[in-house]
Design a protein around this nucleic acid. Structure first.
Lengths: 178, 178
DNA sequence: GTCGTCATGTAACGTGTTACATGATTTC
DNA sequence: GAAATCATGTAACACGTTACATGACGAC
């Protein structure tokens, strides 16, 4: 399996909707993709630079009034082609790595109370995520655009998974109580 | 957030059940943890060596008849302590990174048929996983030991998530059909 | 004057993968 | 004689994070 470089495609995908700065990209990832993706500046900027060296994006300096100047990136022809090529290749599925389940699996090595606390913590996290996602869902459903259809699908994914996780927690807590 | 080193705890946890070789550990990860964890030799052996340098495990050479000799690792006192300390710390939740959802989110950039193929592929993968997990579940439920209780909980987690994923796929495919 | 936001980056490090390298023994 | 399984490891690299570094500007 060749290297994936998925972060590049997150960036390319966001730039497809219009020119943006690194800062903008970070914001948009946090606002829209955070339930299934993330990006740190320490990675984002070097990747952007690498895309530029390979001529997939270009940037121009933008002086602003009342704010620091910034670099605005946009897709080149090669960048669009790279995006299309990415869609043509099948997605790679990352091997899961779940520390909570690792703890649960080795549960007999600790007191049940320790595990119970851990699962309760996970449950409250998941329930909070679920509320957030449901909120986003209602908003997207209100502003029914063509563009939002795909975003909505990803939110629905999150909602379904979070519901399953909360239900599992409740069941696991019942089992550990007995 | 300090570095996690979660693989160390997978190894320590497996060794808690009895001495094992690196090869054994790899096997056991594949057999029992594969739905939420993984390990490659290229990582496993160096980590084992690092644990040994830090006196968390010790090894002895075991000559075998009819098979190559091997190194069998077991927990030291320090190793047990490290395991207990790990349980005392709260789990860290990795930020999710889902390439399929990335593709779905940027879905308007490709033809619906491309996305449909991708989701169908994901669905069949998830359904196959689900069948596998249900099979394991039935086996574990038959041999109801105290030890298997925790394993069963992790399998149940997998089953619930896979069910949610299959359901999402069906719904997403319906939406994309319209 | 200090806090928040806008804005861009580098350096050091950790975690993990893939490909490579080696070799014994058993089964077909 | 070939393939599968048992068994251990190294080297190069990819991906990503955290901590650090810098600085402009606006609002309070």
């Amino acid at each position: 399996m060749p290297p994936a470089n998925r972060t590049e495609f997150a960036i390319l995908g966001l730039l497809a909707a219009g020119p943006k700065s690194g800062y903008d990209i970070k914001k948009e990832v946090e606002e829209k993709l955070s339930h299934f993706w993330s990006a740190s500046y320490g990675h984002l900027y070097p990747v952007l630079e690498s895309l530029r060296r390979r001529n997939l994006v270009e940037r121009r300096r933008e002086e602003q009034e009342g704010r620091p100047a910034r670099y605005v990136y946009s897709l080149t022809e090669d960048g669009w082609r790279e995006l299309r090529d990415w869609f043509a290749r099948p997605a790679e599925y990352a091997k899961p790595r779940n520390e909570l389940l690792l703890r649960v699996f080795f549960g007999e090595l600790t007191e049940p109370a320790t595990l119970v606390r851990e699962i309760e913590r996970f449950r409250s996290r998941s329930a909070a995520n679920l509320e957030l996602l449901r909120h986003v869902m209602r908003e997207l459903e209100a502003s029914r655009g063509e563009r939002e259809r795909y975003w909505l699908l990803t939110v629905d994914y999150g909602v379904r998974v979070m519901e399953a996780l909360v239900a599992w927690c409740d069941d696991a807590l019942r089992v550990l109580d007995a």
